[in-house]
Design a protein around this nucleic acid. Structure first.
Lengths: 218, 218
DNA sequence: ATTGATAACTTATCGTTGATAACCTATCTA
DNA sequence: TAGATAGGTTATCAACGATAAGTTATCAAT
């Protein structure tokens, strides 16, 4: 009767326990997104796995994309934790950036499905935002901007690097974007085209890291 | 009852003129994909613009994705032409690679849907290929392989660069992969996260290009 | 000139999808 | 013990991609 990894159809939640159901929905959505991709995952299948009717999901999320964005924030949060850990344990600015890239690439390659879900993503960010829909539970600050946090940390690292006396070839935020895009290119390529005969994985990761760091340093 | 803005609602095609209708469908699909994106474009709207019923499209294309892939091959043909043009007009191997990167990035950002379909490879079921569907006109050689062709040109360029006497930090294949991954990282990021406040686009493209070229040269 | 095959369509319809409206019902509180 | 409300449900919607089955124009061969 206890909760399993794939969720168990429990009865109606007690009065203040709606957030529990919300977590169950997120868990089921995460599993299905990873198993079959975003587009192939239907509202009804998520609801089935949770053990609840389909419209119940709309009590906790605005729409399907909102579930995806909530999951994005979760995964971004895990990465941010690791970045924070690096900042706490390492003082040298350049070494911090190296470890950032290493942790990022490792994170992506160790969790390829989640990486694909969050950083590559099958979702199409549509600029058209529907209005006039009551969303009583979701945070009014629309989720999905967790990526900005990661970048701000990298920007901060590069600003610190500049403060420490190192000259950069580009503004700190541009350096951060270039660093991230380089590493992201490696991770995304290896995840999305695993059958392609890439050359040595470690050489590519380390190589890209050397390349971007050497490239931004004057 | 006169011509629409783009396509003309003509009557039924004469006997051997089906390919004309096929071209009309591709043109309408291309316009709508560009105007509203791939997912937002519906079969019915394409059919409306052509001036034909929706099921008529299935006389010429297996499914919606087949239209996109046909357009991809068209569009990638233009990129391959551009690359060929670069190879014809520029002799310096390093300059060739620079122009390749520039043409590649520009192509990706100008054709995000095609780029996403081919290089990011969103949701391709792949293994499940429907059979028993009569598709009298479509080429039996399945389209969508333009991407590998483009990449192979870059590999050739880097091999030439090494032959010309330039010393590289990594094997030519690895260099090609690193170059492509860097530029791909820029393009993919901007396509998949267009709402993110990236810094100047030109600086990012040029910057990544400088970075990867400087990075692979000893 | 008529016939028969078939290319080039149409209309009608299917099963799913995301999403909404409107109605229940358990639980907590006053 | 009444009523407010959190936490659901069933019924239904319009739109989607795709298919089935019928219709009509155009050809070639009688």
């Amino acid at each position: 009767m206890a909760a399993l990894s794939t969720a168990v159809a429990s009865g109606r939640k007690k009065r203040g326990e709606g957030h529990t159901r919300r977590e169950e929905i997120l868990q089921a959505a995460k599993e299905l997104f990873l198993e079959e991709g975003y587009d192939a995952t239907t509202i009804r299948r998520i609801a089935d796995r949770v053990g609840v009717s389909a419209p119940a999901l709309y009590l906790y999320f605005h729409d399907k994309e909102a579930m995806m964005l909530a999951l994005c924030d979760q995964t971004f949060g895990r990465l941010i934790e690791r970045i924070t850990d690096i900042e706490k344990t390492v003082s040298d600015p350049l070494q911090r950036i190296r470890l950032f890239g290493d942790a990022y690439a490792r994170f992506g390659l160790e969790n390829p499905d989640e990486y694909r879900l969050v950083f590559i993503g099958n979702n199409i960010p549509e600029s058209v935002r529907k209005v006039g829909h009551r969303m009583p539970i979701d945070d009014p600050t629309r989720p999905g901007v967790g990526g900005a946090l990661v970048f701000s940390r990298l920007v901060a690292m590069l600003a610190q690097l500049e403060v420490s006396g190192v000259k950069l070839n580009y503004p700190p935020d541009t350096c951060a974007e270039l660093c991230w895009m380089g590493i992201h290119g490696v991770v995304a390529a290896m995840i999305m085209k695993p059958e392609f005969p890439w050359s040595n994985r470690e050489m590519l990761i380390k190589g890209m890291q050397e390349i971007v760091i050497k490239g931004i340093l004057r």
